[in-house]
Amino acid sequence: MSFRDRLLGRDRRSAQTARKRLQLVLIHDRAGISPGKLDALKDDLIAAISRHVEIDASNVHVSLRSERDKQRLVADIPLATSRARRRELG
């Protein structure tokens, strides 16, 4: 690893990878929701909300967030903008 790489923060040592993988796996373990289950939940969520309001389904993000001893299910659901809707209709 060169000095330049280090200075630019390009050193991605394996411990850092381990840290990230560990954090992710623990978030899913603690919530008891596997990544596959989360995908299914996202699809259901899209279907349910779409019945009431038009949403930008391709940009829906559903994720688990972990704080000290609370797990949170975070859904970011952008509504379809009027411009996008107009484009669809046009």
Binding site: D11, R13, S14, A15, Q16, A18, R19, L22, Q23, L26, R68, D69
Partner: peptide, 19 residues
């Protein structure tokens, strides 16, 4: 040595996630 090089989880990393 491995922790120092960044190739092994150190005690801080572990305590951080396990609390």
């Amino acid at each position: 040595e491995m922790v120092k090089k960044g190739d092994m989880l150190g005690e801080e990393d572990i305590l951080d996630v396990l609390a």
